[in-house]
Structures are given as C-alpha cells and as structure tokens.
Design a protein around this nucleic acid. Structure first.
Lengths: 146, 146
DNA sequence: AGTTGACTTCAACCTTGGTTTAAGTACGAG
DNA sequence: CTCGTACTTAAACCAAGGTTGAAGTCAACT
C-alpha cells in the first residue's frame, strides 16, 4: 500500500495531542493538511514528527510563534533532516540558556535587594526593571542563517 | 500632622504603577484601602512597601496568586519586619532555583533527545512530559511554617 | 440504505495581568 | 458655590494556547 495518510483522529491518538489542538496548530500555520473530497483533513505521516517537535519545543517553554518560525524551514512533505534537528537543538539551547541566565541575575538581585532592606522605588532595580519584561528576543537567528 | 494617607493617584505616582493596576491588585486582595465618605480609596503608607514587594516579585516571575499568598502573612497597617523580607527572599529564591533546575533538565533532555534523533512519542520524555506543566507547586511553605 | 461515529465550522469561553472607555461622582482651590 | 481635576464603577478588550459546544456533514460497516 502507498504511504498512509492520517485522519485527524489518528494523528491525535498517535501523538497524544487533542484534535482541537491540532486544528489550532493548523490555523496557526504550524502544520498543514490535504483535504478529501468531503472536506476532511488528511495528514502526511511526517506531520507526526512536526507535532512531536512542537510539543517538545513547547515543553521547554518555546511559544508557538517561535516554533512556527523554525518549522517554516522544514519542508512539509519530507522527513526532517538530521541537520535540522541539530540546528533546532542548538537554537533552543541558546534560548534556554539565555532565560536561565536572566533568572539567575534576577534571583541574585532579589536576594541582594531584600537582604539590604532597600526595597524602595527609587533605588531598587527590581522594582523598576528595565529588562524584566523584555521577552521579545530576535528569535532563531542561528537556524535562519546557518 | 498625622500619618498621611494616600489617594490612588498619589500611590500610583509614587510607585510608578498605573491606578488601573492598583485597583486590579485590590480586587485580587493584594492590597487594601479605607474608603472616604465619598467612596474614594485611601491607602495606608505601608501600602507603598506592599506594592514594591508585588512589583519586585513579579519581576522575578512570581504570579500574583502566589504573591498574594505570601502577602497574607504581612499585617496590613504595620510596616513589614526585616524577618518578613528575609523569609520572602528565601522563599522566592527557592522557587527560582527550582525553575532554573527544571529548565536545565529540559535543555539537557532536549539536546540529548535531538542529538540521538529519537523524537518519537513513545520514547521521548520531552514529547510526553510528566512534569513539564506541573507549575502548581505547593507554594510558600517556608514562609507559612517558619 | 441506514446508522453510528468521526469529522467539519464557527463562536463562545477559560486563565493571567492587566488597559481602555464610558458614564457618573467627589474633592479642593478660588 | 463653582469649576476642573481626580476619583468611582462596570464592561469590553488584549495576548497565548487552547477547550467546549452546537449544528451540521462524511465515511464506513452491516
């Protein structure tokens, strides 16, 4: 038989991701599907990998928008190359490391600040944080420009 | 003169926090106010400290619900003791450290997983994360039971 | 051919941490 | 007392990442 396509139910069961979430991912452009004559979705088998990548990336804290950006480099109907995985991995690691460092700085400042009892609006970096909410980084440059 | 109470505008200006946010904090029970005959809010001066604590805690990633839990131990009309600050600091540091460790584990698993190319639903811890979304920890035990 | 279960869409709803807006009321300076 | 500014409320809205439900259609088994 020719490579079997998956219905949304099958993809859902095999990935453990609810159909509603899969439809949501598709609306967001993270996955794509063919439609049958009756307007039902049929997924290429490689979509399983894409979904796995999405969930794994989410589990390390990546927002869907960024994941989508990276998946844009992955051709829809071919299995991802080993190189893709390696670059994605490097990219995520970098992001995670940046976040860890930021949290470490925060923790140290907090302890310091509390320790000296200075919690006031004029002096304290924590209370008037400049970079505290600067979450919108440049994203996966490494993957975009290999 | 007797210890001056603050209007919401004064509290807002002195803390740098918009009035809308202060009203929101009050609805959430994080701060309290007396009302004038005309139904306007008047804040005790110590509220400035509470607000500072709220913003500092937010800046290290604490959700308002948890901050509220901790502030529950701080009497409304007296300035916070040094001991309170120290315990709160210890409490937050612990939380932050836990989050950092979790992210480090995630990063390592991700690299490992990607490195071996195993990104599949049955084997991969990342794809079926047990603790990935276990954000609802026991909260500030250390402060509750000193 | 009929029935059942899986599929379709759209819209409403959830949480967190607020902001914005409208309509109305209070406070304080002059 | 009047005027302008500051205050009050409720309700609607934003982002993310979906879930839930209603109403209707498709696919497949018998």
């Amino acid at each position: 038989m020719i490579a079997k396509e998956l219905t949304i139910g099958e993809l859902s069961e095999r990935s453990g991701v609810p159909s509603s979430a899969l439809r949501f991912y598709e609306r967001q452009g993270l996955i794509t599907s063919r439609r049958t004559a009756g307007n039902q979705r049929r997924y290429h088998r490689t979509t399983l990998r894409r979904v796995a990548f999405i969930r794994a990336s989410q589990s390390v804290g990546m927002p869907l928008s960024v994941i989508g950006g990276v998946l844009g480099f992955l051709p829809e109907d071919t299995p991802p190359t080993r190189e893709f995985w390696l670059r994605a991995s490097a990219c995520w690691s970098e992001e995670i490391n940046a976040r860890i460092e930021k949290m470490e700085r925060m923790r140290d400042r907090f302890t310091e600040c509390i320790g000296c009892g200075c919690l006031s609006f004029e002096q304290c970096v924590l209370v008037n944080p400049g970079d505290a909410l600067a979450e919108h980084g440049p994203g996966p440059r490494r993957l975009i420009e290999p």
